[in-house]
């Protein structure tokens, strides 16, 4: 029995309606966001920076940089969980594009991250603070890389919560990259090093690469190309979670 006289409310929305969808989506998407993980990451990041303040010791400039970089890593680990969505399979086939859904999540997390980063910078006394602009570039590159890796995990797997794998990959990169990067590719240079400028051009490259990766992973594919990495069959009642 269908409700008579029911309007096709969905029919109203066409071009330009995406904005209205995004606006309506802000609140429920804000509720659906796995806030706890980014909050834990951001909290740990601030804690790392606050410890020298609380203990009233002033770290050396190189140590201040290490603390800031670790704080960025902690925050990025939190962001790696941002694409987790337990309702993923239920909302897999809605007309609202994945790009828009992701954009709404991004719109929610960006101001929070900006605020967090400001607080993080302010926790480091200004005279030992490394160059703010360059370090903001590092922070942006790492955070976008975390988000792009999350998007890639969503794009390439069926897992509703790939966050922990993304975080592990990010940490692995963070530990191995400083060890294995050859000198001409050095990214993690100390302040005052003559390679600082060149290293930050590379950071800009990392940021650009992360943005491109993210851009590639946002749309839902219409065809299963050679890059279709879903090798495991999602069928069968015995393996519903397929992660």
């Amino acid at each position: 029995m269908r409700v008579s006289g029911q309007v096709r409310v969905g029919g109203q929305v066409r071009v330009g309606g995406q904005v209205r969808v995004a606006r309506e989506l802000l609140l429920p998407a804000g509720r659906a966001l796995p806030w706890r993980s980014p909050a834990a990451g951001a909290g740990l990041g601030l804690l790392i920076l606050a410890v020298p303040r609380l203990t009233d010791t002033e770290p050396a400039p190189w140590l201040a940089l290490v603390l800031l970089r670790c704080a960025i890593l902690a925050h990025a680990v939190g962001l790696a969980f941002l694409m987790d969505d337990p309702a993923r399979h239920t909302t897999a086939t809605v007309p609202t594009r994945r790009a828009l859904r992701t954009a709404v999540r991004l719109a929610l997390i960006t101001p929070v991250t900006a605020l967090w980063w400001t607080a993080a910078l302010l926790l480091v006394p200004s005279h030992i603070r490394p160059p703010t602009g360059d370090l903001t570039l590092e922070a942006a590159a790492v955070c976008v890389l975390a988000l792009a890796a999350g998007a890639a995990a969503v794009r390439l797997t069926d897992a509703p919560a790939p966050g922990v794998s993304v975080a592990a990959a990010l940490l692995f990169t963070a530990v191995v990259a400083p060890l294995l990067l050859p000198d001409q590719w050095a990214l993690f240079v100390p302040p005052g090093d003559q390679r600082w400028g060149v290293a930050h051009e590379r950071w800009a490259g990392v940021l650009a690469g992360a943005v491109v990766l993210w851009g590639i992973c946002l749309p839902e594919p219409l065809r299963r190309g050679p890059g279709a990495l879903r090798l495991r069959s999602p069928c069968g009642t015995s393996d519903p979670s397929r992660t």
Binding site: V9, G10, Q12, V13, G17, R20, V21, R23, E24, L25, P28, A29, R31, A32, D85, P86, A87, R88, H89, T90, T91, V94, P95, T96, R101, P160, T237, P240, S241
Partner: peptide
């Protein structure tokens, strides 16, 4: 086959959320 939910949502909120994603603005 295995629907997922946001466990903290109420039934109404969840269906409403899906409705928004179905562009019912």
């Amino acid at each position: 086959q295995t629907p997922g939910f946001h466990p903290d949502f109420t039934a109404f909120e969840f269906v409403d959320y899906v409705a928004i994603l179905k562009e019912l603005t």
